[in-house]
């Protein structure tokens, strides 16, 4: 292959990758990636009694892969790890978190159930704070919810799947171990498949920074009608906040939506500046596609 051909090829490849929509570069189906770590990379003031965790995709399968904890400048060790398969959380509770010292924890790559493909691991560097976390976190709960419907290509089914998406805005959260290391747990407390039964945990993840909303997806069957959510936070010692008694609700509408209709006048008629047609656009709220509600919406949305 000539140099010119090679360069042309690389250029075309770069052009291809640069213009290809990011959404189209789908991940392999069922890959067991690390979604988040608590504490996050770069965390400071991690309490001395912290439990460190990596949140994997829930289909991750743990087969005693090693978690490496490096006490920077001191030693590296492989602590005993615990895997909570229900939430996809791999965790360790070190006994050597010295105040002010730096640590690096390396979370392993795991396989997904029924998959031979290794997912993506993670590395998190953090600094230990002055002492232990002794107080329960304080969380104001969910404060707002917006909904929409999305149709997106699914990497497992190779088909377009419809989902309701709910963007949940969060109230303030604080903790003596640092809000950056709080884990958010969201529950669906009302909906067609919840009824008056037990709230269903629908999300576990690190509390987002900068007041970003958290996105929850639900199937059409799970997310149509009056939908309510509640949430709590967990700190690095597994203490939980109050606030889960506060629900935030919204009423969704099942697709298909009726967006609008156009009424056309008979040809030859005149209107306004001499247009040939009189058009009337009627938009229906049914197709508004986006509703929002503030709590409390108890009984009324």
């Amino acid at each position: 292959m000539s140099e010119l051909t090679r360069r042309l090829g690389l250029g075309m490849l770069a052009l291809f990758w640069g213009t290809w929509p990011a959404d189209a570069l789908a991940q392999p189906c069922g890959r067991a990636d690390v979604r988040d770590t608590v504490p996050p990379d770069g965390a400071t003031a991690v309490p001395t009694n912290a439990t460190l965790s990596a949140l994997y995709v829930r289909s991750a399968d743990y087969a005693n892969e090693e978690v490496m904890l490096e006490h920077v400048g001191v030693d590296a060790r492989i602590p005993v790890a615990d895997f909570n398969a229900a939430e996809g959380i791999l965790s360790i509770t070190p006994d050597n978190l010295e105040p002010g010292d730096d640590f690096i924890v390396t979370w392993p790559r795991l396989k997904g159930i029924g998959s031979a493909t290794l997912g993506v691991g993670a590395e998190a560097r953090f600094t230990v704070g002055d002492g232990p976390d002794t107080e329960r976190p304080v969380f104001a709960g969910l404060v707002d919810v917006e909904w929409d419907l999305r149709r997106q290509e699914d990497e497992c089914t190779d088909a377009v799947e419809e989902r309701f998406v709910f963007d949940l805005s969060l109230g303030e959260a604080t903790d003596d171990g640092g809000a950056e290391s709080l884990t958010l747990v969201i529950f669906q407390t009302s909906g067609p498949t919840v009824g008056s039964g037990a709230p269903e945990p629908v999300y576990v993840g690190r509390l987002p920074e900068d007041d970003e909303p958290v996105r929850i997806t639900r199937t059409i069957g799970d997310g149509a009608g009056r939908i309510c959510f509640a949430a709590l936070v967990r700190d690095l010692t597994n203490e939980i906040s109050l606030g889960a008694d506060e629900e935030t609700c919204v009423r969704t509408v099942k697709p298909p939506f009726f967006e609008s209709c156009v009424v056309a006048a008979p040809s030859g008629s005149r209107s306004g500046g001499g247009g040939a047609f009189l058009s009337l656009l009627v938009a229906f709220a049914v197709g508004a596609r986006r509703r929002q509600s503030r709590r409390p919406a108890d009984g009324v949305v």
Partner: peptide
Amino acid sequence: YCVAGRFSECPSRC
């Protein structure tokens, strides 16, 4: 967890 006045379901892998 105690959520909205009742205990939630256990978390499930999927």
